[in-house]
Design a protein around this nucleic acid. Structure first.
Length: 205
DNA sequence: AACACGTACAACCGCCGATTA
DNA sequence: ATAATCGGCGGTTGTACGTGT
């Protein structure tokens, strides 16, 4: 392994270098980023910085109650499949959702409502509020939530869309599913052209 | 005002699967 | 067939900032 990679917080100069690199080479080939961009960061660090911070279309705004509801529901289905959950929340990264879950819900999962200061805040709307009545139609017949450690045998059909782990049936047809290869970095989608959580869910016709 | 504590978030680490030589 | 490399993912840590005492 190559020694001497820089670590720690990114500087604005490094961000600019990385943006320039992605502009000219695309957001791939992270292994060559150090050689081609002049950055003293390894590929993984560059990829992480790009995906979680620099990528166009990231919201970087507080989670809305609607987004909270989506996270709660999808986590109940998929568990800690943060990247999968993130595909349903354009403009949000898996890291962002993971952090949000840990700070807002994980403690309560262990000790419900322990945090008196957050109790009221936790009254997040259930997805019923925005998913309508047919939620159960797309869950397990007995209404059980699936094991959080669901694996391929239990439900993923990873053959459907390349490496995208689609559930064997989309749990919520009301929520457009956005695998990366569909959404990509389309500024229109990421900018909320189809999604506007500040108001209401805009469903594709 | 100073300190302690809690929260939020950026970033790193280790593992795993896919790809390539 | 297999070892090396790479990209992606989830878990964890470090720290800046806010809030309470």
């Amino acid at each position: 392994m190559r020694q001497g990679w820089r670590k720690g917080p990114w500087t604005p100069e490094e961000d600019e270098l990385l943006k320039e690199y992605v502009k000219s080479h695309g957001d791939c080939k992270w292994s060559s980023v150090a050689r081609l961009s002049g950055l003293k960061r390894n590929g993984k660090s560059c990829r992480l910085r790009w995906v979680n911070y620099l990528r166009p279309g990231l919201k970087r705004a507080p989670f809305t109650p609607l987004e909270e509801g989506i996270i709660i529901e999808l986590h109940a289905i998929w568990g800690n499949k943060w990247s999968t959950i993130a595909r349903y929340l354009p403009g949000r990264t898996d890291n962002e959702i993971k952090n949000y879950w840990r700070t807002h819900f994980k403690e309560r999962e262990d000790k419900p409502y322990r945090d008196h200061k957050q109790k009221d805040k936790f009254e997040a709307p259930t997805s019923d509020a925005f998913l309508g009545q047919n939620k159960k139609d797309h869950c397990q017949p007995d209404g059980e939530t699936r094991d959080h450690k669901m694996n391929d045998e239990q439900g993923y059909d990873s053959s459907s869309v390349g490496d995208q782990c689609l559930p064997w049936e989309t749990p919520y047809p009301e929520i457009p599913y956005w695998p990366d290869l569909v959404v990509g970095d389309d500024p229109f989608l990421w900018a909320g052209g189809l999604w506007n959580f500040d108001d209401d869910l805009v469903v594709l016709s």
